[in-house]
Nucleic acid binder design. Structure first.
Length: 594
RNA sequence: UGCCUCGUGGUGUAACGGUAGCACGAGAGAUUCUGGAUCUCUUUGUCAAGGUUCGAAUCCUUGCGAGGCAGCCA
């Protein structure tokens, strides 16, 4: 078993898992059932990954399911184009880890009417996303509009909800000062009649609402007769024009949880003050089955980026990035295109834990998860990003040697490959300095360096153009020093990578850096003022020949530089690489000091 | 302003009345045909003040600080 796999199977502990454990031991529920309820109005991001890993992780650890549910109660903001990307991202994130614990339902299936303890009840059971996912779809809150409406009628009949004719502004004002609506004491029959007519479309948008009758003097605003239904003459992406009244989040969410048999409803901290309302609705309905329990945790914040659909949408819309899947974006599709793997994201998520403290996580933690994985898995390759030509003057013209190179020193099974060597090479321009600082181990005038897997060379001369720029380095090789050869053990301080000029494969290489220049871009409310102008640099690289056949699913370490992944923009013979993450660079730190 | 929640090294977390530990980062060294990786070592912390207790990061009180909510958004 690999280290990462071990880490993943070691069950994390946090306050939520403790609560669930206690509930299980108390026999509160048949099994643990969570849910992941994104609103289909944007792409999933790394913050959603935390929620998914929590919900699905719990399901995994306790042998239950985590329903994927579109939380689509606001037709004005949601679009079906997002649904597909959401499900694809969820599956990608969970591949090989949590698919069997994803709860889906047959396409088009709606809740069944059952009788429990002599009472009518609605439920919709999930199916696991297994071998055969065809015909399975996510849950939709909008599939429960009919049931939710029945519950609304029930509240009205119980005298716990009323139709209110106040405007939005009046409602706000009254709630703020704790004043009761003049429509609060309408008769049950009048309320029933008005609700029916609301549904029938007799009233214009915003003219009336259905409100819960709770307590206008409550210190908790959400208990001051919150709105349950509003009138919206808008087509819904999933239900079409079937409805012109739509339930609010608070009303729909707890009931959706209940209908699906959710036991633990995990959400972020901003819903903490809604919990009394969540409980009030479910308890007021006197439902026959056991009720779901809402538990809140802190959302994920990472430095040097923004994680909110609203802000990410802005970046997409104003062209700051090239789309939701721009490799600089903290979206799952962006991270994936950048080359970051689902396993790395998952191990990052388990590493940061779950608490109620709204923390700011360093990006370095994600980087560590990526480096740890890629060091073990990535194929090593030679590529020169900013080439400078080297002529080995004592090496015969026209001669080409094939040298053996190790694919992965961390994994002998990865084998070796052949690397052509010849008289004319490219090396990284940063690997030569005419006037080097102290402790510079690379090539310098009169100095020696090891060309990895090849010879030790000595720099005799730096050829310059009229502008004084170095155009070529003329070197001599110690022809006895070939790697593996009899006198190859001679110690040279520096070892550098190189590419044979004649056989080099050209590639576009996209060098990504952090999107923002400050740790908290939105601290002053103007995150776009802190965009990093150097977040993308594109270079024309010289690569070793084998990279012409690079595979999208493979990760490559360009030795001494960084980890790279093939971009979908690649064409046959024209590879495009994205820099996923740099290697640690101790020399850069050292150089900075002086 | 009201209400809710939360404060443990630089960062993320653990310790559930009994030795404040782990990871990341940072620093030093060893090693290395990747200035990568690996190995060793070091550094820094319980928001504050009272109280309860043989003993408090943990329980209580007050204060301070941070975040959230106060949409017919979710």
């Amino acid at each position: 078993m690999t280290e990462a796999a071990e880490k993943e199977t070691a069950p994390p502990t946090d306050f939520i898992r403790e609560i669930v454990m206690q509930d299980v031991q108390a026999g509160k529920h048949g099994s643990v059932h969570t849910r992941f309820p994104p609103e289909p109005n944007g792409y999933l991001h790394i913050g959603h990954a935390k929620a998914i890993c929590l919900g699905v992780g719990l399901a995994r650890e306790f042998g239950g399911l985590c329903n994927v549910r579109m939380d689509d109660t606001n037709p004005a903001k949601e679009e079906s184009e997002y649904v597909d990307s959401i499900l694809a991202d969820v599956r990608w994130l969970l591949t090989g880890w949590g698919e069997p614990n994803i709860g889906l339902k047959p396409v088009g299936k709606t809740p069944e009417i059952v009788t429990v303890d002599g009472r009518r009840d609605f439920q919709l059971r999930p199916l696991p996303y297994g071998e055969d996912a065809a015909g399975l779809a996510p849950f939709y809150a909008s599939d429960y509009f009919e049931q939710i409406y029945v519950y609304a009628e029930q509240l009205v009949r119980a005298g716990k909800a009323y139709v209110c004719d106040m405007t939005a502004e009046e409602t706000d004002q009254y709630r703020r000062i704790g004043k009761e609506s003049p429509f609060r004491s309408r008769s049950t029959s009048e309320n029933e009649d008005l609700l029916t007519r609301m549904r029938a479309g007799e009233f214009p948008e915003g003219a009336r609402t259905l409100r819960a009758k709770i307590d206008m003097s409550s210190p908790n605003m959400w208990l001051r007769d919150p709105v349950l239904y509003r009138i919206r003459h808008v087509e819904h992406h999933h239900t079409g024009d079937a409805w012109c009244i739509y339930p609010m989040y608070d009303f729909a969410h707890c009931l959706s949880d209940y209908i699906e048999g959710i036991t633990h409803s995990l959400c972020t901290l901003e819903f903490e003050v809604h919990r009394p309302l969540y409980d009030w609705i479910l308890q007021s309905l006197e439902l026959p089955r056991s009720l779901p329990r809402q538990i809140e945790f802190a959302r994920l914040n990472i430095d040097y980026t923004v994680i909110s659909k609203r802000k990410l949408l802005q970046l997409v819309n104003d062209g700051s990035v090239q789309g939701w899947d721009d490799p600089r974006m903290p979206t799952l599709s962006g991270l994936r295109r950048r080359g970051i793997t689902a396993t790395a994201i998952r191990s990052f998520i388990t590493e940061i834990g779950v608490t109620k403290y709204p923390s700011l996580t360093e990006f370095a933690l994600l980087e560590h998860a990526v480096r740890q994985e890629f060091n073990r898995s990535a194929q090593r390759r030679f590529a020169v990003l900013r080439p400078i030509k080297v002529v080995v003057t004592n090496y015969p013209e026209g001669r080409v040697e094939e040298l053996s190179a190790i694919n992965n020193p961390e994994n002998p099974e990865a084998g070796t490959r052949q690397l052509p060597f010849s008289r004319e090479l490219f090396i990284e321009s940063a690997d030569f300095m005419e006037v080097p600082p102290p402790k510079y181990f690379r090539l310098k005038p009169g100095g020696e360096v090891r060309l990895k897997y090849a010879y030790i060379i000595k720099c005799d001369k730096a050829v310059k153009n009229e502008a004084g720029e170095i155009t070529e380095l003329r070197c001599t090789a110690d022809l006895d020093s070939k790697s593996g050869g009899p006198t190859s053990n001679r110690k040279v301080k520096g070892t550098i990578h190189w590419v044979s000029a004649a056989q080099a494969v050209g590639a576009e290489v996209r060098l990504y850096d952090r999107l923002f220049t400050v740790p908290e871009p939105d601290a002053d409310g103007d995150f776009k003022a802190h965009l990093n102008p150097a977040s993308l640099e594109i270079v024309k690289a010289k690569c070793e020949p084998s990279l012409a056949n690079a595979k999208a699913e493979e990760r490559y370490q360009f030795e001494r530089l960084a980890y790279f992944a093939l971009d979908p923009d690649s064409a046959p013979g024209k590879p495009v690489f994205n820099r996923t993450i740099t290697l640690k660079d101790t020399w850069a730190k050292e150089a900075k000091k002086s």
